[in-house]
Every structure is written in C-alpha cells, then in structure tokens.
Design a binder for these strands. Structure first.
Lengths: 222, 222
DNA sequence: CCTTCACACGGCACCGAGTGCCATCGGCGC
DNA sequence: GCGCCGATGGCACTCGGTGCCGTGTGAAGG
C-alpha cells in the first residue's frame, strides 16, 4: 500500500511536477481511496521521504548503542555515514528526489525540517557526552551542525553527478575535514590528552592571554 | 497596515495559540479585508517574521560591502552579529516569537527555512572568498553552518532567559569558539601564513602521512 | 456454520490556507 | 469634471488535511 502510493507519486511527479500533482491524482493512479493516503502519510510531503522516519530511528539507535570509550566526534561522523548509506542504497530514487527538492521550495523547507531532526539527534548525543564540560552544549551544537553540513555537501555533489562516483569516499573526505577541526583536537571527558601533541594557531602579535585562551579552547578546558 | 496586522496577530496568538487563530480572526481584529492580509504576507507564517526579509537584505549588503582585505571568517561572524542586533533591538517581541516557534512545529519548520537562507548567504560569501582553494565550497558550507549554529545557540539561551543578560556578549563568546576553530587557524587566500604559529593535534601513534595531512588541512593547503 | 469483533478501507462533509478575478473607492494629472 | 491608477474588499474556487461513519473482510469463538 505504502509502496503503491510512493510508486504512483514518483510516476506523476516527474511528468507533472510536484505542486501540479494533487493527492487525488496519486490515489486515483494507485487505485485507493483518498482517505487512505493520509493514513499512511501525514502530509503530501511525507510521500517524498518515505523512509526517513526509519532512518532517524536507526541513527538514534546507533548513537544509543555506543559506549563511553568512543570518541564522540568520531561517533557522530559514523552516524552521518550511516545516513549516507541509506541514500546510496538506491541512487536512482535519491537522485529523483534530489531533483524534486531542488525545484520545489515547499519540499526544500520540508527537507530542512527532516535534516534538522537528524542534527538535533547528533547534538543531543554530543550534549550528553560533553555534559559537565564548559560550553558543552555550544560545542555540541556547532559540531553537529558542521558534521551535517559536511555530510550534505558531499551528498549533494554526489547527487548532482547523478549518483556517479563514490559517495562514501566523498563523505569520508568531507567528514575528515570536520574531524580534523574538532575531532582529534578535542579530547573527550575520558581524557586521552597525554597521547596527543597539541598544535595551536595564533598570530605572533597576539597578547599572551589570547594565546593561552586559544590553547585552553583547543584542549576543551576553557 | 503591516503593523496593524502584526499587532493584531501577536495579540491573538498568545491567548488562542497560533494554529487556533485563523487568518479571518486576525483581519477581523485589524479591521481589514482578508484579501489584504495575503497582499502583505505571502503566508500566515510570514506574519511571525515580519522583518526577516529586510534583515536578510541587510546581511547580504553587509557581506557585499566588504573588501578582500577582510578575514573571511571574521566577516561572516560580524554578519551574524548584525542579525543578532535586530533580535536584540526589541527583546519583548523576540521572546514572544521564540515561545511561539518553540511550541508550533509548523512555525519551527518555517523558521528553519528562514535560517537556511541566512546560512546560504554566508556560505555563498565564503565560497566566493575561498574560490580556487581546494575544498573551498566544503569549507564554506561547514564554516557557515558552524557560525549559524553558534549564533543560534547563544541567541536561544538568551531568549530562554526572557531576554535578560547580555546577548551580544553571549554571541561574541560563542562565535569566538568558532573563530578559534576555523578563523585564525585558516589563513585566507591573501596568505598571512608567516605571521602564524601552527599547532597540530594528532595521536602519537598515528602514521606520519596522517600527521602531515592534518598539518596540510590546518594550513588549508590540502 | 454462523456470529461477532476488530481492523482496514472508502466515502462524505467540513475547515482553513491560499489564489484569481472583479468591483469599488480615493487620489492624481489633464 | 473626466479618466487613470493603485490600493482595497468581496467572492468563488482549489487543494491539503481531518473527523466521522458505513462497509467489507478475515480471524476467533460458540
């Protein structure tokens, strides 16, 4: 039933456009009642993202399954990789959906709210890992946003290329940049500081207290 | 006319709730025709963010007014501070709107699309500044997302406190964390590398090529 | 074999957001 | 005074979304 509705919708959307296709058109093609559509999809936009609810549940389960020995930033990057996997599973569908969301503003807004829930899940996990640390919630929000942005940057360039190329490699590279900025440089509360060599970047002309504060910030002890 | 509609809306929203207030209720209280409402606001959600269009225009103008001598990350942080100024101008209104967007999912989704446009403006500016640099668009997206996340984190904690406290100081502190991670550590194309002391963080057990790559990443020469 | 209960589906009526069209009215230059 | 133009209001319509109810079907139970 869900599959029939999704199939009917994605048959009509490319030829008529999203907004020109009414729910009545979809249910007429699928041969079901109009009321049943809204039983399976809370809104018309939801038919475009049929499995995002399951994906979100998978991601939160993945985050909940980790233990405290994991490096937090590494963990959220792996969670992002998990989401990419679901996109890469059926590239044709992902590309088709990408074309839709790129053109239709209402669909783009809906995608934003979807992505926002992923980002909040990542930030919630990081907030728990950074609990007690000063500016913990700030770092959690910033890192979650950076991870999502890097993931989306790689994902979109892969989608723009019609699903050609290695999506996983692109996302790995993008996430490596984020991990380089936040990951290994920010030891978690578990504290593996003595395993690290610390490198701070600061202008030579900066006052000493400024340099010290940047070192503290890098070490996460501000 | 706009002011009358906004005033009527924000008189009804707190007492009835957003979704329980129909557009007919608003125009009846304002004493204008229903058709005129949609002349001034494309949708019901727009009446909640009456000046965001002007704010976005101000921000893009601010970014366009900068010259190439500016440090790019510093510039987008200042642009974010500019947005905060418009929130801090009338705290009562901002707090009232925050309560609404926190409760109503549809309004939160709309706010996301608003914030997204700010983020795209910042990313577009950074993309221009990073043109030619490897992974320029990736860094632009990540930094823009981090700046917006830091700004929103500080803004929301200020709004949760009913507009008490110094919003500018909170945002300055939040943006300083982002600048510490991306700003001074990443010299722009203008190249002030010889003024910097470079500090890299890496596990001692990491292979040499990994350390070298992190140094390259930190210097923005990967 | 018949009953009954539950559940999924379909149809119907309704609400509210948003739009196109046209009538109206007030200010403006000619 | 006359005609033009922009702003406004009213009307009718579409479409997304919801509540309600009737119906059919299949499984459990007498």
């Amino acid at each position: 039933m869900r599959e029939a509705l999704v199939a009917a919708a994605f048959q009509l959307f490319p030829e008529r456009g999203y907004e020109q296709t009414t729910v009545d058109d979809i249910v007429a093609l699928a041969g079901v009642g109009r009321r049943s559509f809204f039983r399976y999809f809370p809104s018309k936009e939801d038919v475009v993202f049929p499995d995002h609810e399951r994906c979100l549940a998978d991601m939160t389960a993945f985050l909940a399954a980790g233990d405290d020995a994991d490096e937090p930033v590494r963990r959220v990057c792996d969670a992002a990789r998990l989401v990419l996997g679901l996109y890469a599973e059926n590239p044709a569908f992902s590309v088709q959906r990408y074309r839709l969301t790129k053109k239709v503003p209402g669909l783009r807004a809906y995608e934003l709210s979807v992505v926002w829930r992923y980002e909040r899940a990542l930030a919630g996990y990081l907030r728990g890992r950074f609990a007690g640390r000063p500016d913990g919630s700030l770092h959690a929000d910033v890192i979650a946003a950076a991870v999502v942005a890097a993931h989306n940057n790689a994902l979109r360039s892969w989608l723009r290329a019609d699903g050609q190329g290695d999506a996983h490699a692109a996302v790995d590279h993008a996430l490596a940049c984020v991990q380089a900025a936040f990951g290994s440089g920010r030891p978690g509360p578990a504290g593996a500081a003595d395993e690290d060599v610390v490198v701070v970047v600061s202008r030579r002309s900066a006052p000493l207290w400024r340099v010290v504060r940047e070192i503290e910030t890098t070490l996460g002890r501000d």
